[in-house]
Simulated assay, not measured.
Amino acid sequence: MRKLAIIGLSALALSLGACGQKAEDPTDQASSSAAAGPESAPGVTVTDAMVRLPAVPGTPGAAYFTVSQGSGAPRKIASVYVEGAQRAEMHETVTKNGISSMQQVKDVPIEAGKSAEFKPGGLHVMLFDVADTLKAGTTTELTITLDNGDKVSVPARVEALGGGSDAEAMEGMDHSGHDMSKM
């Protein structure tokens, strides 16, 4: 029992001692990781990152964002990772003969001075096995990886399906014969 008390007091003393130490400057960390190599994609920015939670738990969610390349050689987005999703796949909605379907996309080209927009009804990222720890109103991390290994990570806001975009999701659907007041 005495040993447990000594161990507990020692752990408390160590943790209190750490409180007085100077914290590292976060700007120093950011600049060192940006200069470290493949964690930084020069000239590439990701904006408007958003994760939409699945309507029904166990079904896929989605991620949307815009990737812009200000300068440099043409690149391709090779993959997307979203913290809290087991797997993420880039997809594109395609409409043929009035019928919309989704197909997986291997990569997405980006060129200097241009943007690739991931949005409902177009390019998007399907998120599979979304953790129940992701909650509307919080943020998670979204990371894109380019074909050369460079990465860009940004915070993505997390929204429920009804996060102001139900109209977008239902737009273009044939609603004839449905009582919309029951939906």
Rank of each mutant, 00 (worst) to 15 (best):
A116V: 03
V108H: 07
A62Y: 09
G61N: 03
P109K: 05
F65Q: 00
S31Q: 15
A116F: 06
G177L: 09
M170N: 12
A160R: 07
G72R: 00
E171G: 05
H124Y: 13
P26H: 13
D48E: 07
E171T: 10
G122I: 08
A5C: 04
L142K: 12
G149S: 01
P120Y: 14
A116M: 08
G137D: 01
G72F: 04
S176T: 14
V67F: 01
E117C: 11
Q69R: 02
R52K: 12
M90T: 10
S40I: 06
L142M: 11
V51W: 01
T138D: 01
L4M: 14
M90I: 13
E171L: 07
V94R: 13
G72L: 04
I77Y: 00
D166P: 01
S153D: 05
I7P: 01
G121L: 04
S31I: 13
L134V: 02
I99V: 15
V82D: 05
A131E: 08
A136V: 03
K96I: 11
L134D: 03
I99P: 11
V80N: 01
S153H: 07
G113V: 04
G58H: 10
V94P: 10
A160K: 06
T59R: 00
K76R: 12
E24D: 14
N97C: 02
E111M: 11
D179W: 05
A23D: 15
C19V: 15
A49F: 09
F118A: 09
G70S: 05
K182Q: 14
D150P: 04
I77G: 05
G113R: 02
A116R: 00
V108S: 03
K106D: 04
V152W: 08
E171F: 08
R157I: 13
G164E: 05
Q104P: 11
D129C: 03
I110N: 09
T27Q: 12
G84I: 08
M170Y: 14
M180H: 15
E111P: 06
K106E: 03
T133M: 11
G61C: 06
A49G: 10
R2M: 15
M102F: 13
T59N: 05
Y64C: 03
P42I: 06
E83N: 12
Q29R: 13
T145R: 00
E89W: 14
D174E: 08
K114F: 07
L142G: 12
P120W: 15
L14Y: 11
T138I: 00
T27G: 12
S165V: 08
M102W: 10
I99W: 12
D48H: 04
E168K: 12
L161A: 14
H178N: 15
K76A: 08
G121N: 08
S79N: 00
E83M: 12
G37E: 07
Q29H: 13
I7G: 01
T139L: 07
A131K: 10
Q69H: 01
V44W: 11
E171K: 10
A156D: 00
P155S: 06
Q103F: 11
A13D: 02
K76E: 06
N97D: 11
H178Y: 15
T93V: 06
A160H: 08
D129I: 09
S31D: 13
K151P: 01
V46E: 09
S100P: 09
M173T: 04
V130P: 13
